[in-house]
Amino acid sequence: MKIVVTGGLGFIGSHVVVELQQKGFEVVIIDNLSNADKNVFNGISEITGITPLFEEMDLRDKASVIDFFSRHTDVDGVIHFAASKAVGESVENPLLYYENNLNTLVYVLQELQKKDTANFIFSSSCTVYGQADQMPITENAPVKPAESPYGNTKQIGEEIIQDVCRVTPNLNAIALRYFNPIGSHESSLIGELPIGTPQNLVPLITQTATGQREQLSVYGDDYPTPDGTAIRDYIHVVDLAKAHVVALQKLLKREMSSNYDFFNIGTGKGSSVLEVVNAFEKVTGEKLNYKIVARRPGDVVEAYANTTKAKEVLGWQTELTLEDALASAWKWEQNIRGY
Rank of each mutant, 00 (worst) to 15 (best):
V4S: 00
T6D: 01
L9G: 02
G13P: 01
H15G: 04
V16E: 13
V17D: 07
V17F: 08
L20E: 02
Q22Y: 07
K23D: 05
G24K: 08
V27G: 05
V28C: 15
I29P: 03
I30V: 01
D31E: 12
L33A: 10
V40L: 05
F41T: 02
T51V: 15
T51G: 10
T51P: 12
L53W: 12
L53A: 05
E55S: 14
L59E: 06
R60E: 03
R60K: 10
K62F: 11
A63C: 06
S64H: 07
V65T: 09
I66G: 00
I66F: 12
D67E: 08
D74I: 15
V75T: 15
I79G: 05
I79E: 01
V87M: 07
P94Q: 13
Y98L: 00
N101I: 10
N103I: 04
L109N: 04
L112Q: 04
Q113D: 14
K114S: 14
K114C: 03
Y129M: 05
Q131A: 11
N140T: 13
A141Y: 03
P145E: 05
E147H: 15
E147Y: 09
Q162A: 10
C165N: 12
L171E: 02
L171K: 02
A173S: 15
P181V: 09
H185V: 13
S187A: 03
S188G: 08
L189Y: 06
L193K: 11
P194Y: 01
T197C: 07
P198R: 01
T210V: 07
G211A: 09
R213V: 02
Y219E: 11
Y219N: 04
D221W: 01
P224C: 11
T225D: 03
T229A: 09
I231V: 11
Y234E: 10
K242F: 10
L252D: 08
E255H: 13
M256L: 02
S257V: 03
N259M: 02
F262C: 15
G266M: 15
T267P: 07
K269V: 03
V276R: 03
N278C: 04
F280T: 11
E286A: 02
K287S: 14
N289W: 08
N289K: 14
Y290A: 14
R295A: 06
A303Q: 13
N306R: 13
T308V: 06
K309H: 03
L320G: 01
L326V: 08
A329E: 05
W330D: 13
Q334S: 12
N335K: 03
R337H: 04
G338R: 04
